[in-house]
Design a protein around this nucleic acid. Structure first.
Lengths: 233, 233
DNA sequence: TATAATTGTTAGATAAGCCTAACAAGAAAA
DNA sequence: TTTTCTTGTTAGGCTTATCTAACAATTATA
């Protein structure tokens, strides 16, 4: 069982490597800065996590997660984003309030809790910030930054974000029955005026290309790649 | 801000005093035993909590909570029982699984979270074990162990427990739309056969005295006393 | 390549929360 | 009332996670 602190180091390492792009390892100072602690402290912890076989660390070298470390880190990220989604969707928190509380909730130890929460939220793929939520196997759908207007007929996609934040547009979105994480099925497209027939929550609606242009979606059928790939152990 | 540990000491003291009846103070050994730690450790903490004005402690004397200590302890109990209710009612946990996870969740710091959770659960008065949940002011309704059959016409009561645990009875309970924490309004009683007309979730139903005899309720109108009274500060 | 700047490490200290072992105070019993 | 038992306290240690200050290795620069 890991301490809160240890979990936070793993999470930091995940974010500094796989997540924020190019690099696949991180320096001690960098890790310390990310966690708002001193390099000396991070150094001690890296040695401890190396002992536990969660981090690859060598004296004066850069550090990265082992496979087991990565798995645990992804589990923490999964919990964080599920809790953020819960706070936002069920408890009326605003998107900017969720992070702080989720930082605490992500450390609750109970496999059953996470799985039941996931089910309760209907297996969301994205949190209120639009970040991907790993599923129980650590896999994620990578968003393709497609708009609803570009979606293939017959496919089912998930709404990720809006491009237009005006009150009038958001009210329209609401009226159609759409919101973040809603599943949208593309039924057809009228050749005459390009109007798109969609289905949301079993309810049909017809939207214009202009409207569809401002809805960002990810298509479950089109993308399979994981942001934090969990190579086989 | 209190640590998890400090919160647990306050909770222990609350349970050893106001809750479990007669005594209104607790000995050092008793507190230590309740928390599964050594008396020496408890002794240190009692001195620390006295410094923080949360506990009344004197050398070689028995300890009790101050008004502020009691308030904080009740807040922890409130959170514990709200989380138990959430796990049971929303996440399909069984009543014997909720405690362990709630022991962790009760320490999450966020006033907004507690209040929103309370609202989300529709301000429940009892947790899955039938224990009273303090409201935002630390007040609780004391159950009177009344059965539905004894309830006054016109009053609204809350279902707390069942006396008969047979499958056939529980299915009947379910069919009528009843479950723990459901609010029941007593509409009338037919003089001919003593059948009781009730309203649950806006739905009317007619139940027999035999049925009503096996439903334990607490009447919001009949009891006002708090189990952990929060005297005025 | 020699020096300067950056980055990483070690040693020693502190605070929280726990322990054991020895001792002191108070209560009960002889 | 003296002895014994129970209860509570103190002193000194341990671990985790943090710090500062001094030092070492690596990398960049002149």
């Amino acid at each position: 069982m890991l301490s809160f602190t240890e979990e936070n180091y793993l999470k930091a390492l995940l974010h500094l490597t796989s997540e924020n792009g190019d690099k696949d390892d991180a320096g001690t100072n960098e890790i310390a800065a990310h966690l708002n602690i001193k390099p000396a402290t991070a150094n001690d912890m890296l040695k401890k996590l190396k002992e536990k076989r969660l981090v690859d660390y060598e004296r004066y070298g850069r550090s990265s997660l082992t496979i087991s470390g990565r798995k645990l880190a992804i589990e923490v990220v999964r919990k964080h984003r599920l809790w953020e989604t819960f706070l936002y969707e069920k408890l009326e928190f605003t998107w900017d309030e969720v992070h702080e509380v989720a930082e605490q909730l992500e450390h609750i130890q109970s496999a059953k809790l996470v799985d039941k929460l996931d089910k309760f939220l209907n297996y969301p793929a994205f949190d209120p910030h639009g970040d991907m939520i790993p599923n129980a196997n650590g896999e994620m759908k990578v968003p393709l930054n497609k708009t609803l207007n570009e979606e293939v007929i017959g496919h089912t996609c998930t709404m990720v974000a809006v491009k237009d934040n005006s009150a009038s547009f958001l009210q329209y979105v609401d009226k159609v029955g759409l919101s973040i994480n809603k599943k949208i099925k593309i039924l057809s497209r009228h050749p005459y005026d390009e109007m798109i027939e969609i289905e949301v929550n079993g309810r049909k609606a017809s939207v214009s290309p202009k409207f569809a242009e401002n809805i960002v979606v990810v298509c479950e059928n089109c993308s399979k790649k994981s942001k934090f790939p969990l190579r086989d152990v």
